[in-house]
Design a protein around this nucleic acid. Sequence first.
RNA 1: GCACCCGUAGUUCAAUGGAUAGAAUACCGGAUUCCGGUUCCGACGAUGCGGGUUCGAUUCCCGCCGGGUGUACCA
Length: 597
Amino acid sequence: MQIEQILPDAVSGAIKELYGVDAGASQITLQKTRKEFKGHYTLVTFPLLKISHKSPEQTAGEIGAWLAEKSPVIAEYNVIKGFLNLTISSRVWGELLQTIDAVPDYGFTPVAEDAPLYMVEYSSPNTNKPLHLGHVRNNLLGHALSEVLRANGKKVVKTNIVNDRGIHICKSMLAWQKWGNGETPESTGKKGDHLIGDYYVLFDKKYKEELAALQAQGFTKEEAEARSQLMEEAREMLRKWEAHDAATVNLWKMMNDWVYAGFDETYRQMGVSFDKIYYESQTYLAGKEEVLRGLKEGLFYQKEDGSVWADLTSYGLDHKLLLRADGTSVYMTQDIGTAKLRYDDYPIDTMIYVVGNEQNYHFQVLSILLDMLGFEFGKGLVHFSYGMVELPEGKMKSREGTVVDADDLMAEMIATARETSQELGKLEGVSEEEAEAISRMVGLGALKYFILKVDPKKNMTFNPKESIDFNGNTGPFIQYTHARIQSVLRKADEQGIAIPKKLEGAVSLSEKEEGLVQLLSEFAAVVQQAGSEYNVSLIANYVYELVKEYNQFYHDYPILKEENSALRDFRLLLSKNVARTIRKGMSLFGIDVPERM
RNA sequence: GCACCCGUAGUUCAAUGGAUAGAAUACCGGAUUCCGGUUCCGACGAUGCGGGUUCGAUUCCCGCCGGGUGUACCA
């Protein structure tokens, strides 16, 4: 039984008794009591005035008196203006702490057979360049959201759509063919995705040179683009690919495999994974079929040049291209096909796309198009839209080479964690393997926490230096607190003090202890809210608050030195639960917490 | 132009329509020699502007101002 249930029940009981009316949940607004007032939870009485027909103060007073007298949960109350501050009895806090401890995975609903199925798409890389900082936010959000949904008892299928075909892929293929001299990841020692990325950049460079040369001959920019030999070759390659030309397809396969090997390494390092991967090369034809069906059924229209369009003006939007004049498909076509195949493959209840907010329009259109095509799931798509990641120096621009590579970033974070730890003397006396493991946990934890603590829909600034600080609202600070608690528990064990399973005897608790139990008992509600709002940053803020509270408690009260054994037991149990909650909360983010550091 | 998103301390982030808008960081002052150094306390400092709804607005609505993104036969 959680406090979030006990309290509203008690309050609505009081209202029923006093005024003879069943108050709706929306009218019972309970919130945490602000620090400066006495009490744990506060009932706002303004919404209840219509029921009580009395002044706010009177209403609060009556409900408070009733609860204090009749409810075993409420020890005392006070009224300030229209706010009724309720103090929960120490006995109830003690019982709650045990309840929390008794359930192994408290706060987490087991996944039932008939639980709704959520499919979460995230990452969605192009196979022409390595993952960068933007993908990092995407991957971390997608992974965390999946974990949070699962913790809420949903079935989750994590999926990825790989953009493995299209003109952009042909560009790097062409560059490699022309200037690659047969280079491979093995021959260069480069990760496959980086190698391919280099050729994509090379294409762009050569293409620009060609344009410049043409413009120097007196052509306009548009004329130069139309005359570009390179671009024509790339388009030719795409046509060959779509016509299943053996040489082209083989080259494509070989180069894509290099990239996948590179991606796999990045994903492994980041700690994210997928249950099912879709490739656009395998879904775009399904999309094309659907578009042609739509055309036949008169849902779409065809221009004289043969291109196919959807008229969305009745939805307040523009006309949208679905098939090019040469019959090749575009991004939207592919997404239609992918969606259809997914719903064929799985009994999806909710489809969530973790994709940046620059594609808000795309998903608005996708939803409408699927609906037009008769897929009832169209309207129900969820676009989990997140903001851009910027750096303290400003925005990342690929042209200016200021894009932060995901692999480099992670390596740097780990290296920095190691340096800092060494400076602080944390790595003294630990083996090389341990030092490496701790540096990884801290470095990656810093990165993940810093990114996930921000409200997903907002643009954010990622500051590597700040993120890895061992102080403040950072991953390492949380990890450190956890490690310190573990140290206390270890010391208790060494001194032969057992951590009790059950508390014997009543103890009177300090406000800080009550506050901590209060926080612990709210964890489940936070996880649930995060799941229903698709906002994982709530959990980060919760964990940090818990850690801060614990540190204040830790500073003021002895644990092992406490002479009253009942109180010591309570504090040990409390510490253990805080550590558990930290681990659980961080695990939703894919963040490891070291036992010691 | 049109559409969508965002404007909160110097900076990075919080705040189901609720009380005196919270943290962190930076700077300044103090405590702690402890189970673990990275702990704790205090001071400083903010809702872009103007209306509206409400008992109550950072939050909802309208209009400005500022920033971002999209509006591609790119993905």
